[in-house]
Each structure stands twice: as structure tokens, then as C-alpha cells.
């Protein structure tokens, strides 16, 4: 009996030691404890908190520098006021936050772009067949816009551009990069222009071909720009004409607020005037 009691005592002691070892082990290895606590367990060193660094002495001169912008990117205009690429850096896909007020601005610019392009289409209705006019009107009226973050195109979470995309299930839509939200707050004119250009890409020569429109919709403009519409939309081709048509249309109905260098060339500005643009 005494032996049994002794045994129980040692088992209890063993269990306590075991529990203590396990807890200590987990505390030291698995938990994400502050380094100081780990060191305290490991080496029993007395921790001395670092002395605070001295306050910087006030500068004798008070500089009145302009506050630098908090965004990272390109504001879309050269020092001479010419249009360049407008793009602002966004954020990691998992850290994107969307301010509803900023998105409301983007939506306003999107609707303004649609309205301007539809007004342009109405005023140029005579230049298109009835079917083409109807399809172009539908294409823009029903175009959707997707707000960031966009999991289908994750690189857009960092890049500040938007793209025209054809979703296999939901049809044509604009997908906006996170950095575009900065453009919408920084430069409303440029934001409207960029959105209008993306919307106008729904009328690009190859996009209209995809819809089954076989008539040479933009031949007059493309001939003027010295681009051939015939071999634009072949397999594996890239559509410079899509950028030309959409850029000039957008510049005509939603001017970007900077000088388009392409329009400084007389041959291009003449083409621009043919579609109703004025510099």
C-alpha cells in the first residue's frame, strides 16, 4: 500500500514535470512571443530598455517646401503640358480598400463617358448602317464596369490602369486597376478621358468584327491615319487601330486636359477634325 502511494506520488511528480516541460517547450518554440520574453526564458538576462534617442534640435531655418505628393506614379502630363501615360500605383490584392465616395466619382466619369459617346454616335448616325448604329449603341449602353480588386486580373490591383475586357459569361466590361482610383481623385478630366477611351474600345474595329459587323466601320478615319483596316483583326494580331480610334474619339468627346502630341501633327489633327474633334 505504501509502495503504491509512493508510486502515485512519483507519477504525479512526473506528470507535473512533463506538463511543465511541454508548456515551456511550446512557449519557447511555437508562440510568437516578443523577442525580449524569449530571451528572458532562455538566458535570464536582465532586459534593459534602450534609452530614448535625444530629441532632434530644431532646425534654425524653417523650410517652406511644397508638400510632395503621397501617391506613386505618373500624373499623365509632361512639364510642357503634353499628355503622357497616366498611372498610379495601387496595392496588394488582399489589401485593397475601396472608398465608396471615390468609386462614386469613377462611376460619374464612366456615365459621363458613355453619355458623351452616345451623343457623338447620334450626331454621326448617318455615317453608319442602321444595324451597325444599333449594335454600337447597345454595345456602349450595356457596357459594365468592375471595381477593384479584380481577382480575374490580379496584376491590376497594383497597376493603375483600366482595361476593356470581354468576360465569357458577362460580356464586355471595363476592369479597373486600384491605382485608377487615385487618378479619379487627382485629375477628373483625365479620368473621364481614360474611361471614355476604354468605353470607346467597345467600338474598336476588331471588337465590331467580333460582333459580326462586317462593313468597314472606321475605314475613312483609318485611311486618314494611314492604317489599313483589312488586316487588322487576323489571328494573333494586335490592334493599334483600336487604340487610335478609341483615343481620338475620347479626345473629341472628353478632352484629357493636356496636349495630345499626336494632334500636333497636321495630318493627324486633320483626321481628328473629321470625327468632330477640336483642338
Amino acid at each position: 500500500m505504501r509502495m503504491m502511494r509512493g508510486a502515485i506520488k512519483y507519477y504525479l511528480l512526473g506528470a507535473i514535470l512533463l506538463s511543465a516541460s511541454v508548456i515551456t517547450y511550446f512557449v519557447l518554440t511555437r508562440w510568437d512571443l516578443p523577442q525580449g520574453v524569449v530571451q528572458l526564458f532562455q538566458s535570464e538576462k536582465i532586459m534593459v530598455s534602450p534609452s530614448p534617442s535625444p530629441e532632434p534640435s530644431p532646425s534654425p531655418e524653417v523650410k517652406t517646401e511644397e508638400p510632395r505628393p503621397t501617391w506613386v506614379g505618373s500624373n499623365g502630363r509632361s512639364p510642357g503640358g503634353r499628355c503622357t501615360s497616366a498611372e498610379f500605383r495601387g496595392e496588394a490584392l488582399g489589401q485593397v480598400t475601396l472608398d465608396p465616395e471615390v468609386w462614386a466619382k469613377v462611376m460619374n466619369h464612366f456615365h459621363a463617358g458613355k453619355k458623351n459617346l452616345l451623343a457623338w454616335l447620334d450626331s454621326h448616325q448617318a455615317e453608319f448602317s442602321a444595324r451597325t448604329y444599333r449594335m454600337m449603341k447597345e454595345q456602349v449602353s450595356e457596357l459594365k464596369i468592375q471595381r477593384p480588386p479584380i481577382v480575374q486580373d490580379p496584376d491590376l490591383s497594383w497597376r493603375g490602369i483600366g482595361i476593356f475586357s470581354v468576360d465569357p459569361k458577362k460580356g464586355p466590361m471595363l476592369r479597373m486597376g486600384t491605382g485608377f482610383l487615385v487618378l479619379a481623385t487627382q485629375d477628373a478630366k483625365r479620368s473621364k478621358f481614360e474611361l471614355t477611351r476604354l468605353i470607346a474600345q467597345a467600338w474598336g474595329p476588331c471588337e465590331l468584327q467580333r460582333l459580326g459587323i462586317t462593313e468597314p466601320t472606321w475605314s475613312a478615319l483609318l485611311q486618314c491615319l494611314k492604317m489599313s483596316e483589312g488586316d487588322l483583326c487576323t489571328d494573333g494580331s494586335y490592334s493599334e487601330a483600336g487604340w487610335a480610334v478609341s483615343t481620338l474619339l475620347a479626345a473629341a468627346v472628353s478632352p484629357p486636359g493636356c496636349k495630345m502630341s499626336v494632334l500636333e501633327k497636321p495630318e493627324y489633327s486633320a483626321c481628328f477634325r473629321k470625327i468632330g474633334g477640336s483642338e
Binding site: P100, Q146, P149, Q152, M173
Partner: peptide, 11 residues
């Protein structure tokens, strides 16, 4: 709370 991954397209 305004983080809406893959927001539904709007028209």
C-alpha cells in the same frame, strides 16, 4: 468593411 473582392460589374 468596404473591401469587396471581385466586385460585381456595374452598368
Amino acid at each position: 468593411p468596404s473591401l469587396l473582392p471581385g466586385g460585381e460589374p456595374e452598368q
